[in-house]
């Protein structure tokens, strides 16, 4: 002990090396390394869960994947009794409802975001945004409840008038039963609009003042400034919010199941009942008899998972680059 204390100060570089070795033990003794390892386990459990999720979806859909291959996605026969499974009606329904929902919610959401970010005083804007974000806190099954008992009766009185004038257009013709692609799209658009508003508002607020001042100096009106200088500057973040909403709309289950009618058919008319991937899983999963049936439903889950992951990943990337943008700008 005493000898070491004498020697080490004379060889500083070696002592540093010794220190480092001892420090790890010291840190372990103090608890730093223990805490590090335990929290590391917490963080890595996310990766384990995600890997397990992918593995389970893949393994438990093998029968269906081997039996139908890629035809699974484009065949339109869904016949559990004879063991023939084609998911086209569900894929079609999912795409149609999600796109229509976005077509409704993008203009309204973007309009509100512009109002809240550019026009409303900050205090009012914060209060209104808090209220709008409450919409995102409402569970999807409650949207379904409202959809069945409030939206559909209202649509029943409105749609016939609408069809009287526009019924000749193929997408609006046919008998209206209340449950339809259209009803599902309206419910979905209400569910995703808070996401578009709150994210777009954030990125609009983050646009530098100089961007606005430069446009104003050119003699632009308030609207010109907003539409030509502010919105284009924030477009990546806005696109991010749209992709996020799309992923959410594609995967939305309960509210859609309750208002879309659950009929496995492909119709050009938006007023006809249909089906979506998430809805068929919710409805048939617990009743699936036989492994092939179950595996076909899990393959639908796998498809849904893959598609929503792609859009989520895109959204996150766009918003990450947006954040980099902010720092630079």
């Amino acid at each position: 002990m005493a000898k070491a204390a004498l020697v080490i100060p004379e060889i500083p570089f070696q002592s540093r090396g010794l220190d480092r070795k001892q420090t790890w033990w010291e840190r372990l003794r103090k608890g730093d390394e223990v805490v590090h390892l335990i929290t590391l386990a917490g963080g890595w459990s996310i990766l384990v869960i995600t890997a397990l999720l992918v593995q389970h979806l893949w393994v438990y859909s093998r029968l269906s994947r081997h039996a139908f291959g890629w035809h699974f996605l484009v065949d339109s026969t869904w016949d559990p009794v004879n063991g023939v499974f084609g998911a086209w009606p569900f894929v079609y329904g999912t795409v149609v409802t999600s796109l229509l929902a976005l077509a409704i919610s993008i203009p309204i959401g973007l309009g509100s975001a512009i109002f809240l970010a550019e026009l409303a005083p900050r205090k009012l804007s914060n209060a209104l945004t808090f209220l709008i974000e409450l919409l995102a806190a409402v569970p999807s099954v409650i949207y379904g409840l409202i959809g069945i008992f409030l939206l559909i009766p209202v649509l029943f009185t409105v749609v016939p008038y609408f069809q009287k004038y526009f019924g000749w257009i193929p997408v609006f013709n046919g008998t209206f039963y209340g449950v339809s692609y259209f009803s599902a799209s309206i419910v979905l658009s209400i569910m995703v609009v808070p996401f578009i508003i709150s994210i777009s508002r954030e990125v609009l607020i983050a646009v530098p003042v100089s961007q606005r001042e430069a446009m104003m100096a050119l003699g632009a009106t308030k609207w010109d400034v907003t539409w030509r200088a502010v919105v284009p500057y924030a477009r990546q973040g806005i696109m991010g919010s749209i992709f996020l909403s799309l992923a959410r709309a594609l995967g939305e289950t309960m509210a859609v199941t309750m208002v879309i009618g659950n009929v496995a058919q492909v119709s050009t008319s938006l007023m006809a009942p249909g089906y979506t991937i998430a809805a068929v899983i919710a409805n048939e999963f617990t009743e699936a008899t036989g492994d092939l049936y179950l595996h076909a439903l899990i393959e639908l889950g796998l498809v849904l998972f893959a598609v929503t992951m792609i859009f989520n990943a895109l959204a996150r990337l766009l918003m990450l680059t947006m954040k980099g943008h902010e720092v630079v700008g």
């Binding site: 996310i46 996020l244 992923a247 998430a278 849904l304 992951m309 989520n312």
Partner: peptide, 25 residues
């Protein structure tokens, strides 16, 4: 980065898919 990104992706997994996962698990 990996953990953060995976967490965000896990957050975006449709709830019905999570149901399937736990069903098989």
């Amino acid at each position: 980065f990996t953990i953060r990104y995976t967490t965000d992706l896990l957050n975006g997994v449709p709830s019905v898919v999570m149901g399937i996962f736990v069903y098989t698990l």
